[in-house]
Nucleic acid binder design. Structure first.
Lengths: 225, 225
DNA sequence: ATCAATAATTCTGTATACAGAACACAAAAC
DNA sequence: GTTTTGTGTTCTGTATACAGAATTATTGAT
């Protein structure tokens, strides 16, 4: 396992604020608070069992994280991303992953690469079992792990932040069996290129993988359910 | 002028929170609150003329922004970056600027490029007058503007965030006349490549420029004043 | 005089209180 | 019937209050 606790790594943590942040992020990602929803401080505070003060602090934190938008006199609403914004974010992710991959090919440790391979194998298992949820999480973990191989804290952080914003959207994952198989094949190629430390090839595949991810997401926007 | 208000662009703004954020950021960047300083909520609140509640919310926002670190039962301290972290951030900035430059070469408008040229010319003026402060600000503005040419909101945002974190460090700007002249020459090349829309050349120069920036900063770390 | 233990103070973390803006609903005017 | 206006409610924004942890000062012992 990589020691990259999602969005930020600190030694000690603030119990309450951290708990509220996790809960809120989950509520947003899982769709319990759909995009556009005003989050009512009274209600949510009661629901989480905390007063408004620490809750508001958490909301400000999430606002800076980009999951939530602050609108004057009206509190915070769950940020809604348009097709354009999603495309932009995926493009930045692509840039980051490609460069991370290139760096990883030259300076990752064999052990680090082996860890990614292990995640990949686990993911294949999930694919075999058609366990979408577990597959999805391992998928994210693999991309995070590849970025982590570049051993650049800022890179990991920025990547994680963008990934968090997109979780809600990619979580949908309605792709059909064929697309899914395609994605798995791409991942297979990724791992092979990484193990062979072929920077060019890895970068190319990562780029294609992300481009296809965008295609899949775009379909959601063109034909909104 | 590019319409890129530093870190985030919203239509309406929250008066107080926004004011506090600006003030705090300034205090940190200008060194009024040096790295490692605990920010005392009572004192700062009194100094800014606001109560602790909105101040704390602003601090949480800055924590998510990475300017400040939250330590349990001890409030927030101004984040101190080590050589490694600075190098990592500069590397990510390099990656982002290089890609932005490549994209800009193919899809920027002539008007957009002209704006960057205008900033550059202004900067040359400042250099002629040896106005370090104005030079520094235009320097940042130019890099921001080049990134903006890629017309990717997420890219701008991520770049701006990293740039903000580094402001405090790059602000020092102790470089001697020779290095300064070198930086100006690099900028000249950048603009020429951009105007010629030579993606490869622009990317190469941007990369070198950022690498040299790191060399300059590294000197600060090797020989801390 | 130095250090340890303890007391006093400060500061953070959380809850609550209050004022004003936004919102919802109902009644009146057109 | 539709729009407008007025009123009551809800919710946000900010200040304040209070409990507990951390820090500092003080006192006693070696």
């Amino acid at each position: 396992m990589t020691d990259m606790p999602d969005t930020d790594a600190r030694i000690e943590r603030l119990p309450l604020l951290d708990a509220i942040l996790s809960r809120l992020r989950d509520m947003i990602i899982e769709g319990q608070l759909p995009p556009g929803t005003r989050l009512n401080e009274g209600q949510i505070g009661q629901q989480l069992g905390v007063s408004r003060t620490p809750l508001r602090e958490a909301i400000k934190y999430l606002a800076s994280e980009g999951l939530v938008e602050l609108v004057p006199s009206r509190g915070a609403v769950v940020k809604q991303f348009g097709a354009r914004e999603v495309r932009d974010m995926l493009e930045v992710i692509r840039i980051l992953e490609q460069q991370a991959g290139i760096i990883a090919c030259t300076q990752a440790t064999d052990a680090g690469i082996a860890e990614v391979r292990a995640l990949h194998d686990q993911m294949l298992d999930c694919y075999a079992r058609r366990d979408r949820m577990a597959y999805y999480k391992l998928n994210q973990a693999i991309h995070t792990a590849i970025v982590a191989l570049a051993d650049n804290g800022a890179l990991c952080e920025v990547h994680a932040r963008l990934q968090t914003r997109l979780k809600r959207i990619r979580f949908i994952g309605h792709e059909g069996a064929d697309k899914w198989a395609g994605a798995v094949a791409e991942h297979e190629q990724m791992i092979l290129a990484l193990e062979a430390r072929e920077a060019e090839g890895l970068s190319e595949i990562l780029g294609r993988h992300l481009t296809l991810a965008w295609d899949r997401v775009r379909a959601e926007f063109d034909a909104p359910s």
